[in-house]
Amino acid sequence: MSVERSRLPDEIKHWYGDMICDYTYTLGIAGEKFFTGLKEGRILGTRCPRCGAVWVPPSIYCPDCFEELTEWVEVPDEGIVFSFTIAHAGPDGKPLQEPEIYAFILLDGADGGLLHKLGEVRPEEVYIGMRVKAVWAPEAERKGAITDIRYFKPVE
């Protein structure tokens, strides 16, 4: 081949490097409104005047029409499990001690919804189409973050 190749493990060397990459991520107009809403225990979306879609997560533009969106609507903190997965591995790929249930929750009245954990339910009880409701962190502990919702739980 075109390249002389070493087959001696001791000859093979690496240099270790790391990248220090810290950022702030600007919430923006839509983000500020949405996360302020979460702090108040409300889920907000934007409605498109042209196609009528209510987008959650919201943006100030319609991904379908490219219309500028200025109308905000509150949607219920309830919806259905559109899809779910039983997670056995954590963010680093290492096994979780207890499996967790992750879901995409399609919110009532919204074209979209939220990715979040399910709680107060066993994996074998969950099904696509199951009605669920947000369980909020106590008001004093909310920070204006997606984790202000602790998880979604089945509606009794």
Binding site: T85, A87, G90, P91, D92
Partner: peptide, 25 residues
């Protein structure tokens, strides 16, 4: 997404699990 998804602390392959489940359904 740094604001909506990353704070959930999920391994990205969880998204494949979610999509697979709905696709099969």
């Amino acid at each position: 997404d740094p604001i909506f998804t990353r704070p959930l602390g999920w391994h990205p392959y969880a998204l494949a699990g979610l999509e697979m489940a709905r696709y099969l359904y």
